[in-house]
């Protein structure tokens, strides 16, 4: 027993130092040198302030902006810290809804969202991603259909023609990676920044 104690202890300490400290610290240094912007979180600044990360979705409720997908993230209740309250796109507590396929709560939520969206753009088919919560609650993207669906509302709110908004949306559509992997998508934050920049009166 004693004979195997020394290798156990020595290898544990040394391998811990290599894999738990040297490796992550060396990687942090290398990453900062090779990809400084990405290693720090792909932050976007506008007029000197950080407005978000290009990879993390954020909550949009104003009719002037294109909205992202429903988000199921929560935050501590400011009144009672033992409880949580809904807090969409909370980037320090990622989570999905975890509602199952026969959940009554899920069916109710989807029904409510469908009614709101149909009232906003009657006659058009509501894209599925606009009424389903993402896995992380921080999905930065929506489908091109979901972005186009919201064009009439944004055009009305900003008092510009639908064609101008639609042109800006179309310019932001990204195809599948290498034309093959993933799905076509629109980054909501990038699109809204483009809307603000392109429709400044």
């Amino acid at each position: 027993m004693l004979a195997s104690f020394r290798p156990a202890l020595v290898l544990f300490v040394l391998l811990t130092a290599i894999t738990g400290l040297a490796y992550p610290l060396a990687m942090t240094g290398l990453a900062a040198a090779l990809f400084p912007g990405k290693a720090a979180g792909s932050l976007i600044t506008r007029d000197g302030t950080v407005v978000g990360s290009s990879l993390i979705g954020q909550s949009f409720t104003s009719p002037r902006y294109i909205h992202g997908r429903p988000s199921a993230t929560v935050a501590a209740d400011p009144v009672d810290a033992t409880r949580t309250v809904p807090s969409a796109y909370n980037a320090s507590n990622s989570a999905g809804s975890n509602l199952g396929p026969t959940s009554a709560a899920l069916a109710e939520r989807v029904k409510g969202d469908l009614a709101t969206l149909t009232a906003e753009n009657p006659g058009a088919t509501v894209p599925v991603d606009l009424v389903t919560a993402s896995g992380s609650g921080l999905d930065p993207d929506i489908s091109p259909e979901a972005a186009l669906f919201q064009v009439p509302r944004v055009a009305r709110a900003r008092g510009v023609s639908e064609d101008r908004v639609r042109a800006l949306v179309t310019a932001q559509v990204e195809d599948r990676t290498l034309g093959l992997l993933g799905e076509p998508r629109v980054n909501v934050l990038a699109l809204n920044l483009a809307l603000d920049a392109g429709l400044r009166q």
Binding site: L106, D129, V131, T132, I142, S143, G182, E183
Partner: peptide, 16 residues
């Protein structure tokens, strides 16, 4: 409820 396009609840759009 009239929803088509598969089950996207809990999924990320970039993966589909």
């Amino acid at each position: 409820l009239g929803l088509t396009g598969g089950n996207l609840e809990g999924k990320e759009l970039r993966f589909g």
